[in-house]
Amino acid sequence: MTAVGNRELWCPLASSVHPMRAAIESDSMAWLDGHAVMPEDRRTEFRSGAPAALGSHTYPRGTRAGTQLASDFITWLFAFDDLYCDANRIGSDPVEFSAVIGELIEVLEDPGRANSPELPVARALRDLDGRVAAMCSPVQRRRWADDTEKYLLAKLWEAGRRRAGSLPPLASYVHLRRLGGANVACLMLTDISLGCEVPAEVMCSPPMTALVKAAADLADLDNDLLSFARESGPGEEFPINGVTAAALHGARDTAAAVDCVLRFRDSRMRTLLELSARFAQSQDGPAADFSRGVCDWVGGHIDWIMKSGRYSQLPLGSGDWSLPR
């Protein structure tokens, strides 16, 4: 249980870190630098948030190569978000942003043909796609690519909502946030990192689909809760955040909006625990391993987010948002 002022982030899941964390984190930053994705004048600030450490927290049981691949993808996601979505005006302009999104989707749909000149962020994504394809089956690669494309298209939705200064009610927001958080795409690397493959009929079954959605929602809403104070500070743009959605649709004040998000978030944790316990008892080895990896992912994400320094521990509503572990 993680304290959030007079509230709590409930997480009964254990967390661990990959034994090769230091090497994986170093190699992810070197990989990103090798593709010149992050401009030199922003590298120090980018590194300070420990983006390359998240992979080792969320894929602690993965093979060295599998966790490295996942870590590189997560580091790419952070760089893309920082460069194009949050800290750059293009993320507020759906028209201009669509050109970048289109180039990245083209990489995933036609990886053998590179544009000239090519954005560094596109060149790095092409490298990731090739490595995913080399490490897994065509079905696994397609799952990851499809969910990465959904992520990119959902970022356009975010840009439109930011421009309009509006969000739908919380339940609808969570659906779109799930796509725009890239967490489903990250979770599609779980069995790849473990060196196994969940059969298509199991991965597409309602229980497994619900498990993945619950895990993604937990990461998104925890992120929202811990980043809202920073995102809603003076001089910041309209925050794409669950607290914002709740505040716009019925919550009487910020504290009530936070409580609304916490209740929704805790219901997703109960769903995750119920479904993961069911898979743990199954005779399907890859499904049980995947389910265990999903729980690793959720527990590791909370552990990382509390330690990374990426999210400001600022007052939110009437509570003291200091977060001891």
Rank of each mutant, 00 (worst) to 15 (best):
G242W: 05
P239Y: 11
Y84A: 02
E236G: 08
R141V: 07
Y151F: 15
L13I: 02
R310A: 08
I74K: 03
N183W: 01
R270M: 05
Y59E: 01
V202L: 12
K155R: 14
I105N: 09
G235D: 12
A79M: 04
L77S: 13
P51S: 02
A3E: 15
D224N: 07
R292A: 09
M38P: 10
A65W: 07
A251T: 10
S308P: 05
F290Y: 15
R143W: 14
P207D: 10
L221R: 02
G102D: 10
A171T: 06
E158P: 14
V212S: 02
R21C: 06
A14S: 15
A122Y: 00
A154I: 06
L218E: 02
E96H: 13
A134T: 07
A124R: 00
V100E: 02
E149V: 14
R278D: 15
R278Q: 15
D253G: 09
H57C: 14
D253Y: 12
R177Y: 09
D110S: 13
S71Y: 01
P117L: 04
H18A: 07
Q281D: 15
A210N: 13
A145E: 12
M20W: 15
G235H: 05
D266R: 11
V132W: 03
A247H: 15
P324V: 08
H175F: 04
F80M: 07
V95H: 07
A287C: 04
K155Y: 09
D82S: 03
P51R: 00
L32H: 07
G285P: 13
W144T: 10
F46Y: 05
N183M: 12
